[in-house]
Design a protein around this nucleic acid. Sequence first.
DNA 1: CTGTATCCTTGAAGATACTG
DNA 2: CAGTATCTTCAAGGATACAG
Lengths: 115, 115
Amino acid sequence: MSSNVDKKNEESDVCAVDFAFRRIGGKYKGRILWHLNRHNILRYGELKKEMNNITTKMLTQTLRQLEQDELINRKVYHQVPPKVEYSLTEIGYELIPFVHYLENWGKKQLENKNQ
Amino acid sequence: MSSNVDKKNEESDVCAVDFAFRRIGGKYKGRILWHLNRHNILRYGELKKEMNNITTKMLTQTLRQLEQDELINRKVYHQVPPKVEYSLTEIGYELIPFVHYLENWGKKQLENKNQ
DNA sequence: CTGTATCCTTGAAGATACTG
DNA sequence: CAGTATCTTCAAGGATACAG
């Protein structure tokens, strides 16, 4: 792999940007990471309430993607009724500074708009 | 505005995250910012080459959005043939640290994958 | 060279009903 | 409680032709 990376290093850099954007893109991923960071651990239902109006389909689907990309942990308690807890993985946690950075940037833009 | 922000501060925080994600979401925005930062100024055609396979429709459309959100400048030289230069605004430039953060994060994940 | 204008395809997201 | 399963809608993105 490193053989063809050498000549076109710029390309692989861009791919990394692209790769990362695909990982955190979509309508809900940023907000889910934000909430999970704020609460450390959230059950499915708790997260759904925080997300306000998201459908179960979208929430489940998005959580599965995040889990597959290893940005979040999913811990199932085999009880009745069931209990499932979500939390950030280390990799996911590494995105938090960036989420906060974006949040502050966004706040700044919103303030300027409302003046 | 600040009156109803007090009681539900968390909500406005999330909105800022959401707001920012919409600004830099989409398939090409991150990469465009990345290239503009790298080259300072790029003409339409140069940027198109850098972007590799993007259609004129998508490139123009995305550039117009970025311009409207004041993340980039568009400078037209009324010549024949025309010449248009794109560059980052100050606001857009403020997103660069975040693009780089994501880039490094992405590189790290890609390295782990290929091992 | 820097775009517009159309038409078309695809995938993301939403609504709703149902289940272990 | 924590999801699945379908069906539908809609906007993002792509292909192609043309223009100032």
